[in-house]
Design a protein around this nucleic acid. Structure first.
Length: 924
RNA sequence: GCGCUUGUGGUGAAACUGGUAUACACGCUGUCUUCAGGAGGCAGUGCCCAAAAGCAUGGGGGUUCGAGUCCCCCCAAGCGCACCA
């Protein structure tokens, strides 16, 4: 008896799709376009695990559905192939990262092809390929050749800035630039030598060099971005990170802070992710206030969001790392301040993090004059002030700010309450600094906080020692890495001045090196490359670009992947615009997803593209976790005790490979073979079984809980795996991988197959006309399947198919006119079996090129005459009424119904509750 | 501490704008063909009960004829940010 043979079917159709290039997409079509993108993977050595395909299956379903609906769909795939693991492997083995990367990509591709995804592989991109990184370098050059004009609120060519300089210097330039940019006039500009001019321009370029304190990771030998560091450790590898000053390439993303923020309102992204980006950008409205130093012309400038509390200032604070701290220190105090600076400097991020609660600081011996009261206010240095936020200096208001309060208490500084509330301990939750009215505050006394801020801001502006200001938390992004396996910068140096390489010379190929470690003198690995000089004499940049460089614009390369003249042709970009649907993990919230928005806005400003957001709709697929299993060894022995008996012994919990466990029952023989250490183990069983413990954890090799999709595919087939991953639950939700339910899905596909075959397994469908009942089942399914795909509710779709197939089976329906559309509806989810059935039904074209059936509303309309009804929301009955009757008639017929009449106890209904034309409730 | 999200059977989970809560699947129980092969069919399965009635969507209030869904207060879990002035 013939059965559903997935092995044969899947191989057959994958080969066919590949050979006939079924999934090739044209750049021009009379059909409407739809662009669906997956976050491309980094091809690691471990291959794909079952978590990877989750998002890919979802995009594939939407792709197939949209294609059936008559869209021209772009659905490409590629590889984010520059990165640390390949390089680390290279350091260990000496093997060129390009080679490892190539092997890994081959394996990934093989796995992806096995899953029957409809990618147009002709458009594949690899960020580490010179054809690709040529354009990453090109975009870098465009950034280098641009500045941000805040008057026009967009990036412009650096040439327009030079023109302005020549005419009127930089006095009237309103640009995103370095804080320390000196003011010059046109004559001064013209008098400057080339080096001086370039130095000045560098302060305006959208990518620039600066000496900055960076996160230096000694173990990785590189600098990390803020989002690559967590708790003072590198996200990758968990090595300690320290603060170090280095000359770095930096992206002026702060120029786009406001547009990155406002753009969020126009894109369809998950709210939590938008919120993460909002917090990261961290816009806050406040005020800059200048305090004159006592006995000096110097001024201390602070940023505050609560200028209304200025009458409560009892001390000033400056970050110990602040570059101007010496100016604010009395000569006699310098020694103790310097000692304090040193003690703070050597602490790593981690140490500072864990010492959040300890209060340290030192008096600088200097004072400022309070602008309103004229009182002398002492200046302190304290590490609770961040050098990088605001001006690196704050005014201490212990009456309203809990941190200032804690500091004042610790050093016994006075507290002046400036707003109503109990000030004995303002860190208690019943004190809310954002509420109340002002006291002890001269002209703002009695005003509520909000009004007080407004009035105080006006006053300081009027008196000229302050100005309202919008401050951002986001900082410019460090863009260089001291690594080998990344894009080389198209930059060479003439007397230490960075010069852009001519665009014609791109790509600047990554040179060969003899080892992938920094040089002995501490230069990055490119320092090992021979003749790494432009024209043989001007040294090239030794840093390479970070991982996010290539991924910040890849969506555009897919549109025109083989273009040798442009990163993407205007025509192709205008046709595809931007991504309609993007699916990937939320871990890229403040990395890739922010940087790609930044580069897109930049390319838009410079007229290279017509969209200023890369991804219209974003869905975060949840993480697939894993269920780890444990065995319990009695301490100091080689005896293992079954889960429910373990409390009787003193045991140690050990991870066991989940492939040795079925339904929490341990395969004892397998376990003995797994590790020689356990070959002679003894077991204390429950009955004749050893039960393991279990816990949900991250999927990781080291926890022995990784599930390789290859095994699942081998056992059940790809279509079953695809359906099952969707059936598992909503796509956005993180959930543990659990194989136990897969039999249900597997059964469903077998039933589906059997619908088209008779009892002896021979393909057989009837050409009989379907009855209304069968049509109803079909059209209900079509309708619901469309709704589900529109809502990305794939799990309910799978249930729906099961119901449909069960119903048809119980009707013994084998009619072509029902079964042919059914194969089409299921095809986005289970393409192989559907294609096979489609061909058995005699179709010549691939199911991928067919048209999704249209449902007939007539067959979907529910029974309109039978309603559930309750009386006073309690009793229920089904009554039969006509929709067309006027309300009075309905009321009459309700009273005539015996059952209802009994409940009504003869009283006429006071009110009939209608919902969508149906009586739902009767109120007495 | 702040922000966001989520709490429904033994398990994964359904439930459209408030309208018969627990669809579908797993698991479990019984059973049939009879097989020891991860096969197929049928019936049962929220809780308490012999049954009827009753009670059930983390807990407590509220709005409503009617609340898993809306509002308020708690509790728990997950994620993100974290001295941001």
């Amino acid at each position: 008896m013939a059965e559903y043979n997935f092995r044969e079917i899947e191989k057959k159709w994958q080969k066919f799709w590949d050979e006939k290039k079924i999934y090739k997409t044209a750049n021009y079509s009379p059909k409407p376009k739809y662009y669906i993108l997956d976050m491309f993977p980094y091809p690691s050595g471990a291959g794909l695990h079952v978590g990877h395909p989750l998002g890919y299956i979802a995009t594939d379903i939407v792709t197939r559905y949209k294609t059936l609906k008559g869209f021209n769909v772009l659905h490409p795939m590629g590889f984010d192939s520059f990165g640390l693991p390949a390089e680390q492997y290279a350091i260990q083995t000496g093997q060129h990262p390009a080679k490892t990367t190539e092997q890994n990509i081959r394996r990934y591709k093989e796995q992806l092809l096995n899953m029957g995804f409809s990618y147009d592989w002709d458009r594949e991109v690899q960020t580490s390929s010179p054809d690709y990184y040529k354009w990453t370098q090109w975009i870098f050059l465009q950034l280098f050749g641009s500045w941000y004009n805040k008057k026009t609120d967009r990036a412009e060519s650096i040439g327009t800035l030079i023109e302005i300089f020549e005419q009127s210097g930089n006095r009237n330039v309103y640009a995103a630039c370095d804080e320390d940019t000196p003011e010059i006039n046109a004559d001064q500009w013209k008098m400057m030598d080339e080096a001086g001019k370039q130095k000045l321009l560098l302060k305006y370029r959208l990518t620039y060099q600066a000496e900055t304190t960076v996160n230096w990771c000694p173990a990785l030998g590189t600098v990390l971005a803020n989002d690559e560091v967590r708790d003072g450790l590198s996200v990758r590898g968990g090595h300690p990170v320290i603060r170090k000053s280095m000359l770095q390439w930096i992206m002026r993303i702060t120029a786009y802070a406001d547009r990155l923020l406002s753009g969020l309102d126009r894109i369809d992204w998950p709210e939590p992710l938008k919120e993460m980006q909002r917090n990261w950008i961290g816009k806050s409205f406040g005020c800059i206030v200048r305090f004159k130093l006592a006995g000096s012309d110097l001024e201390m400038v602070v940023f505050t969001t609560r200028v209304d509390t200025i009458f409560g200032v009892t001390f000033m604070t400056i970050a110990p790392e602040h570059e101007r701290i010496r100016e604010f220190t009395a000569p006699g105090q310098w020694k103790s301040v310097e000692a304090y600076i040193n003690s703070v400097r050597d602490k790593s991020e981690r140490e500072r993090m864990s010492e959040v609660k300890t209060i340290t600081g030192v008096f600088t011996g200097s004072y400022v004059i309070h602008p309103f009261t004229g009182k002398k206010i002492p200046i302190w240095a304290a590490d609770y002030v961040l050098a990088a936020y605001g001006t690196g200096m704050v005014m201490g208001v212990p009456g309203s700010d809990t941190r200032d309060f804690a500091f004042a208490k610790h050093f016994n500084l006075p507290v002046i309450p400036v707003q109503t509330g109990d000030h004995t301990d303002i860190s208690r939750p019943d004190f809310d600094a954002s509420k109340g009215t002002m006291i002890n505050s001269s002209f703002i006394d009695g005003l509520p906080v909000e009004a007080a801020i407004k009035k105080a801001t006006e006053k300081v502006e009027e008196l000229g020692f302050g100005k309202s200001k919008i401050n951002y938390r986001i900082r410019d992004a460090v863009f260089s890495r001291q690594r080998y396996w990344g894009e080389p910068f198209p930059i060479y140096y003439v007397e230490n001045i960075p010069c852009p390489l001519d665009e014609e010379k791109l790509p600047l190929l990554l040179p060969e090196v003899d080892a992938y470690l920094p040089t002995e003198s501490g230069e990055p690995p490119l320092g090992r490359a021979r003749d790494w000089k432009y024209l043989g004499k001007f040294p090239y940049e030794l840093n390479t670009m970070p991982g996010w460089a290539g991924s910040s614009w890849y969506l555009f390369r897919y549109m025109d992947a083989h273009n040798e003249k442009e990163f993407c042709s205007k025509d192709a970009q205008q046709y595809w615009e931007n991504v309609d649907l993007y699916i990937g993990g939320s871990e890229h919230a403040t990395g890739h997803l922010l940087y790609s928005r930044f580069w897109t806005k930049f390319l838009f400003d410079r007229g290279y593209i017509t969209v200023d957001e890369p991804f219209k709709k974003l869905i975060n697929q949840g993480m697939i976790q894993s269920r780890s299993n444990f065995v319990y060894r009695i301490k100091g022995t080689n005896r293992f005790v079954s889960y429910n008996l373990k409390d009787d012994y003193d045991t140690q919990q050990l991870h066991v490979d989940i492939s040795l466990v079925d339904n929490d029952i341990l395969n004892i023989e397998g376990f003995r073979k797994w590790n020689p250490e356990y070959a002679r183990s003894e077991f204390i069983l429950e009955g004749d079984r050893y039960y393991c413990g279990a816990e949900i954890e991250k999927m990781s090799k080291s926890l022995f809980n990784v599930v390789n999709p290859d095994h699942v595919i081998e056992k059940y087939g790809v279509d079953t795996m695809r359906l099952y991953e969707m059936f598992l639950g909503p796509i956005e939700q993180s959930k543990p991988w659990n194989i136990h339910g897969i039999d249900g899905v597997s059964k469903f596909l077998k039933k589906f197959w059997r619908l088209y075959h008779d009892d002896s397994g021979v393909f057989a469908v009837s050409d009989e006309e379907p009855g209304e009942n069968e049509l109803k089942i079909l059209h209900k399914t079509i309708k619901k399947a469309e709704e589900d795909i529109r809502n990305f509710s794939f799990n309910t779709s799978v249930s729906l198919f099961m119901i449909c197939v069960n119903e048809l089976q119980s009707l013994k329906c084998n009619k072509r006119k029902i079964l042919e559309p059914l194969a089409l509806i299921i095809s986005p989810y289970a393409p192989h079996i559907s294609e096979e059935i489609w061909r058995l039904l005699g179709n010549k074209e691939s199911i991928f090129n067919s048209a999704y059936p249209v449902y007939e509303p007539a067959y979907v309309v529910e029974d309109t005459f039978e309603y559930p009804v309750s009386v006073n929301g309690k009793l229920r009955a089904k009554i039969i009424l006509s929709l067309d009757l006027p309300e009075d008639e309905i009321r009459k017929s309700v009273l005539e119904l015996d059952a209802i009449q009994k409940w009504l106890e003869g009283k006429p209904p006071r009110k009939l509750i209608f919902v969508r034309g149906k009586i739902i409730n009767i109120v007495i």
